[in-house]
């Protein structure tokens, strides 16, 4: 049985957000809904192309990632009243979308804010986004529709874990349930890597089996282990995502800005 884990080396991140978007496209998340986030520290405008910290020319930039930690001691699993959220033996924390009743206890319990509640039908969320494209094309289907009304993106086939519905494109889910990063269980179960890992420009995200000392994650942690941190470790959640903090910053005029 593998022991899945992820390492995110922030020194390798270019801040390109390809992981965010590739994840959203693969899982059929409507525009504006993301299961993983990359942003720049210090900006008071989260949607800024880029943000720096400091006083010109003494500057720095720091990408921040957020993703489900697939905790070993996951509070979300404990509070789920219907056992929709569960921990698999390989470490993945998954949601059975058939079971979820949308109570959002898990969202309150999660100290990392990685869960996404579908306040409205995802089909409506995408309609709002498409309306904001402001297409003046006189012959389009409708102001809030794709060119073909029934088109849905995202990996199209459901994935079930011992009968539990753990993957379906979110655009096909209905409002009132909670979703989150599933570490691409539908891919990993077929021997593939999670999408965000596969597309990462800087190979900043690494996924693998902690029980295998030769796996990429094990080797990375062996090499950079002393630097690796897990988020809010004092809470005892035992996250399975390890971060290598950004230590390499550009020198400016011969100095490293703090």
């Amino acid at each position: 049985m593998p022991k899945w884990a992820m390492v995110i080396d922030l020194n390798r991140c270019t801040g390109c957000k390809t992981c965010m978007v590739a994840c959203a496209m693969w899982h059929g998340l409507p525009p504006g809904v993301f299961w993983t986030i990359v942003k720049w520290a210090g900006s008071n405008v989260p949607q800024a192309d880029m943000a720096t910290i400091g006083d010109y020319p003494s500057l720095g930039s720091y990408p921040i990632h957020n993703i489900c930690n697939h905790c070993d001691n996951a509070p979300c699993v404990k509070v789920c009243p219907v056992n929709a959220t569960y921990k698999r033996d390989d470490g993945m924390v998954l949601i059975d979308y058939d079971k979820c009743i949308g109570c959002r206890y898990c969202m309150s319990a999660c100290p990392y804010g990685v869960r996404v509640f579908l306040w409205e039908d995802p089909s409506r969320t995408i309609s709002d986004a498409l309306r904001r494209v402001k297409s003046p094309y006189p012959y389009k289907q409708a102001p809030d529709s794709m060119a073909e009304q029934n088109y849905i993106y995202g990996y199209p086939l459901d994935h079930r874990d011992n009968g539990r519905l753990v993957y379906r494109p979110v655009l096909k889910l209905r409002r009132g349930i909670v979703t989150k990063c599933d570490w691409c269980v539908e891919r990993v179960d077929k021997g593939l890597k999670p999408v965000c890992v596969e597309v990462c420009v800087g190979r900043a995200r690494i996924f693998g089996d902690l029980s295998d000392p030769n796996s990429d994650v094990s080797r990375m942690l062996a090499e950079k282990g002393p630097n690796a941190v897990r988020r809010l470790e004092h809470l005892g959640t035992e996250p399975r995502v390890y971060y290598i903090p950004k230590t390499s910053k550009p020198r400016i005029l011969g100095e490293v800005t703090s």
Binding site: M50, P57, S61, P250, R251
Partner: peptide, 14 residues
């Protein structure tokens, strides 16, 4: 300007 490529650079000369 501080470009995002500076994020992976050793030195930035503005």
């Amino acid at each position: 300007n501080y470009p995002s490529v500076a994020n992976i650079a050793d030195e930035l000369i503005l």
